[in-house]
Simulated assay, not measured.
Amino acid sequence: MADKAASRAKFEGVFAAIREELLQHFAGEGMPVEAVEWYRKNLDYNVPGGKLNRGISVVDTVEILKGSALTEDEYFKAAVLGWCIELLQAFFLVSDDIMDSSITRRSQPCWYRLPEIGMIAINDSFILEAAIYQLLKTHFRSEKFYVDLLELFHETTYQTEMGQLVDLITAPEDHVDLNKFSLDRHRSIVIYKTAYYSFYLPVACALHLLNIPESYTASGVTQKPYEISKSILLPLGEYFQIQDDFLDYSAPSEQLGKIGTDIIDNKCSWVINTALLLCSKPSTPGGAEMRKVLDENYGRKDAQCEARVKKVYETLDITKVYGEYEERVVGELKAKIGGIVETEGGLKREVFESFLGKIYKRSK
């Protein structure tokens, strides 16, 4: 635990440095003092307060792949890329909370809900995204992989926004139609909305930072590290989001750090899709009646409706179904990871074992 705390503290130290760098650039553009202070508050409120798993994973992955301790410069560059991912996360969360009319984030009011902020939060989210490219330009413009990083961040942002669009049009808050829902649609949403930026992006950043090519041959074995990484990390990201969906339903708000709203917000979550599938099976007693309850109560801004939906979930024993799913998918992921052919200067199984270890059986 001490090592984890020390790792986080060191990573946060880099944020302090790049925050001042961003603010100095902002002020250097002639922005008034109150605008600089607004930007400072935006950065401090929205960027460093989460678990930081995405950002720290860049540093961890670089260390694992290099196979030795990082120099001060290597650590700083890896951490800058990590904070670029945390800025991307902040951009998504600030805007997503507005679209979802969310109340809390990370155990505090959502940024847009602060009385002095309101819809200025939309522009604030744009600034958080733009900060990524300012940092990439400052720290990596002279590197041969600079364009690769630009393309990676642009493509990942685009993929995430694709997933967000499919999510929003599949499950608009003001129009409930559970016939649009399916586990296949859910999978498409979460791969694009979550898996690319939360799991593949940190590893791809590390691979670029170490100048690892798209394909190479070592000891007579042809390796495609980016493709191999994607084949493991996208299913891992799907597992993470399904876990998140389950926690939204099952975990107390004080444990989760936010109020679970998937049911009342008409979210196309794994839980409702699994419930719909179970209700459709002839072997499920009372399945048709429970489906009717879901149709009549899901996505309603009413605590009693939410309770009726949760009662169906309990009757279907969604907790047991999730537990069985988790053990199955973790077994499949471990098998994929075990199949990696390790080569000098290439991929290592430990990279993916580290990711899996961070989320397996998590409670928030």
Rank of each mutant, 00 (worst) to 15 (best):
153 F>T: 03
153 F>I: 07
74 E>W: 07
90 A>N: 02
356 L>D: 14
276 L>N: 07
137 K>Y: 09
332 E>V: 02
90 A>G: 05
3 D>Q: 11
276 L>F: 05
142 S>R: 15
225 P>V: 09
328 R>Q: 13
113 R>G: 12
200 Y>N: 10
13 G>P: 04
89 Q>P: 00
337 I>R: 05
111 W>M: 07
50 G>A: 06
153 F>R: 09
147 V>K: 14
110 C>R: 09
264 I>E: 15
363 S>H: 12
117 I>G: 07
241 Q>C: 03
303 A>W: 00
50 G>N: 06
291 R>L: 11
143 E>F: 14
279 C>I: 00
335 A>W: 07
6 A>C: 04
213 P>V: 12
213 P>G: 11
207 L>N: 10
302 D>K: 01
43 L>I: 11
159 Q>H: 15
178 L>E: 05
238 E>A: 12
305 C>M: 01
297 N>F: 00
131 A>H: 11
115 P>R: 14
269 S>K: 05
16 A>E: 04
362 R>G: 05
347 L>R: 01
299 G>C: 06
236 L>F: 04
169 I>L: 12
77 K>F: 10
272 I>K: 03
4 K>P: 00
352 F>T: 12
294 L>H: 09
157 T>F: 12
276 L>Y: 06
104 T>W: 06
53 N>D: 11
99 M>K: 08
199 F>M: 13
86 E>H: 05
102 S>N: 03
203 V>H: 05
21 E>Q: 13
252 P>Q: 09
294 L>A: 05
11 F>Q: 02
192 Y>N: 15
168 L>H: 10
193 K>W: 04
314 E>F: 04
82 G>M: 06
174 D>P: 04
332 E>Q: 14
3 D>P: 00
131 A>R: 09
95 S>E: 13
163 G>H: 03
292 K>R: 14
7 S>N: 14
246 F>H: 13
159 Q>N: 15
322 Y>Q: 06
115 P>K: 14
212 I>W: 01
192 Y>M: 14
93 L>F: 04
330 V>C: 13
268 C>T: 04
9 A>Y: 04
45 Y>C: 10
266 N>S: 04
21 E>W: 02
12 E>L: 14
339 G>L: 01
340 I>K: 12
316 L>G: 02
274 T>G: 03
207 L>G: 11
92 F>G: 01
345 G>C: 01
310 K>Y: 00
15 F>H: 00
321 V>Y: 02
66 K>R: 15
15 F>N: 01
265 D>M: 09
229 S>T: 02
163 G>M: 02
333 L>A: 13
133 Y>E: 08
325 Y>K: 00
258 K>P: 11
30 G>C: 12
256 L>E: 07
364 K>H: 10
300 R>E: 01
110 C>T: 03
361 K>W: 13
280 S>D: 12
13 G>K: 09
